[in-house]
């Protein structure tokens, strides 16, 4: 089975801190990591390869520094890696991103299965997976929490819903986006790290993927950010002080009024 996993480099949420003065994100010393959901997509790809055979190809669209996450993916069991990088991609919204990724996936081969994380933690849109599936003319299932079986080009899987989960069958080739419950990602292996060190990642530019430049980056993006501003700050907060008994009294008052209406 030819499996393609799309991964994105994001700032490590563990390191992201709110600057209390400005109420903006302090990015100082923030590491860049594989989007946490994409880690689970990669792990699922490698597990399916181990069970059903085939290859795992990882693709990332991003700046040249995104090489690092592709190298990490190789060390965790991916076979091939492509970096889709070009200044022409800057400013891409999800529509332009899915176009670019679809061109790159087509260039990288003909996948039987495409895996993505359910969303990226920097943008949180959850739009790229479904959009990419449309471009590739594949059925898709989002928020997959378990792949049960693969038999005769039909996948059986479980999809998270707000009120439980659905069990679905989906025809291959297909695209899945996965949630964290699906697996526990592995650590790299020493052999994988040695392979990753010697592996040459293939870089793809806009020209390499045969892209129509009008559909790329900012120009190919129907949405535009027109302003960026800090969120409203909380009004003055009230400290509830005093003895335990006093604190309990005041708390009871506030909770009762807020819960049942003053």
């Amino acid at each position: 089975m030819n499996i393609v996993v799309c991964i994105k480099q994001v700032p490590d949420a563990k390191d992201v801190r709110l600057d209390p003065e400005t109420n903006t994100l302090s990015r100082e010393g923030v590491k860049s990591v594989i989007n946490p959901y994409d880690r689970h997509a990669l792990e699922e790809g490698v597990r399916l390869k181990e069970e059903y055979g085939g290859t795992v190809t990882v693709i990332s669209m991003g700046p040249p520094q995104a090489q690092a996450i592709l190298t990490e993916a190789i060390s965790c069991g991916a076979d091939e890696a492509f970096l889709v990088s070009d200044r022409a991609f800057a400013g891409a919204d999800t529509l332009a991103t899915t176009y670019t990724l679809a061109q790159a996936v087509a260039k990288a081969g003909k996948p039987d299965l495409v895996l993505c994380g359910k969303q990226a933690t920097d943008g949180d849109t959850a739009q790229v997976g479904p959009g990419l599936a449309v471009r590739l003319d594949m059925p898709f299932v989002t928020c997959v929490k378990k792949v049960r079986t693969i038999a005769k080009d039909v996948l059986t899987l479980e999809r998270m819903m707000d009120d439980g989960y659905d069990v679905l069958e989906v025809d291959l080739p297909a695209l899945l986006t996965v949630v964290k419950e699906i697996n526990t990602p592995r650590f790299p292996s020493l052999r994988g790290m040695r392979r990753a060190r010697d592996y040459q990642i293939t870089s793809l530019t806009a020209e390499d993927i045969g892209a129509d430049s009008s559909r790329l980056g900012l120009g190919g993006s129907p949405t535009q950010v027109v302003s960026v501003f800090p969120p409203e700050k909380k009004g003055d907060r009230t400290m509830i002080e005093g003895s335990v008994a006093e604190q309990v009294d005041k708390l009871a008052e506030i909770l009762f009024d807020s819960a049942f209406g003053a």
Binding site: T94, T98, Q127, P130, C143, P222
Partner: peptide, 23 residues
Amino acid sequence: ATAIGRSFIPRVATSLNTGLTAD
């Protein structure tokens, strides 16, 4: 922006070649 909305609305936006803003 429910499980259902987040799943198929992006598909519709892509098919209609238009923008979509989540959440």
